[in-house]
């Protein structure tokens, strides 16, 4: 009886793994199968044409804009916030509050961020439906990611480095800049790369703050759509699965490249002796 139960459970384990891997392969395989015919130079670098047959270059540019702007803001703030929490703060109510806030931000669904961005950045700050409104919203979304990964990276720096540096009559700031940040750079960098992935995958928050204009943005105050929002809209409005899948290929390849570079950077820099 016991062996029967064991075998049944063992079978279920194999079956589940098989289902998981099968479904995920099916999804990725389907997207590549459906979309690969559209992928060519003209598709990626060509301008969009509303009548069909055009490229996705405006959406690529918009995506790059949103990544660049939100990371330019979120990275320094996130790193310095993590530095405060790990290196400066004394444990107490203030730190607890900050940590609680950071964790809560992680749990808020992106549609709520979208609501907030739409009323705060778009309306109250009068930035309109624009790349800048979306980027500022995304800044708040990735801020906890940057803080958490930086904190983890700072934790791996041996306390002996801090003592050694401070005992030489340096200030905390000098110790931070010369020893601690360089030592934790690989972890911080891979955190930033993972945030890029988060921004690329985001849709609801951008949908409500950047609008849906399908054209090359003339400035960061223009309304525009990112790749992911474009994939959504062509599916919803036109039912164009092939086009959505082709965009999907671009997105998946981007995510792949980002993940590999994150792994590569953290391995490469960790192995290097300094």
């Amino acid at each position: 009886m016991r062996t029967f139960k064991d075998n049944l459970l063992r079978g279920l384990l194999w079956f589940s793994a098989f289902v998981t891997v099968g479904i995920l392969l099916l999804i990725v395989g389907y997207i590549f199968y459906k979309g690969f015919r559209l992928i060519n130079f003209e598709f990626i670098f060509g301008d969009y044409s509303p009548t069909g047959g055009g490229g996705i270059w405006p959406m690529v540019v918009t995506t790059v804009y949103t990544i660049a702007i939100s990371l330019v803001i979120a990275t320094p703030i996130g790193i310095l916030a993590a530095v405060y929490l790990q290196e400066y703060a004394k444990q107490g109510r203030l730190v607890k509050t900050i940590r609680f806030a950071t964790e809560s931000l992680t749990g808020i669904p992106s549609i709520i961020y979208g609501l907030f961005g739409a009323v705060f950045f778009v309306t109250t700050l009068k930035l309109g439906m624009s790349i800048i409104s979306a980027s500022l919203t995304l800044t708040i979304i990735v801020l906890p990611v940057v803080i958490r990964t930086t904190e983890e990276a700072l934790k791996t720096v041996p306390g002996a480095y801090r003592e050694g540096s401070l005992a030489l009559g340096t200030t905390k700031l000098q110790t931070l800049i010369k020893v601690i940040l360089p030592s934790s750079m690989p972890g911080i960098l891979s955190g930033i790369i993972l945030s890029m992935g988060r921004i690329i995958g985001e849709s609801a928050a951008i949908f409500l703050t950047a609008g849906t204009v399908a054209a090359m943005p003339s400035s960061i105050f223009s309304s525009a759509r990112t790749l992911t929002v474009h994939a959504f809209l062509v599916t919803q409005e036109a039912g164009d699965i092939e086009l959505a899948a082709a965009i999907g290929i671009v997105l998946i390849v981007l995510i792949l490249v980002l993940n590999f570079s994150a792994t590569f950077i953290s391995k490469k820099l960790n192995k290097a002796d300094y």
Partner: peptide, 26 residues
């Protein structure tokens, strides 16, 4: 005070830099 009173620790705690940079650090 700490420039005047140096310290050597239980375990060697050189920074992950070159020998030169370690000594020139202070």
């Amino acid at each position: 005070l700490r420039t005047k009173v140096g310290m050597v620790f239980q375990k060697p705690n050189l920074f992950p830099m070159s020998i030169y940079d370690n000594v020139a650090y202070g």
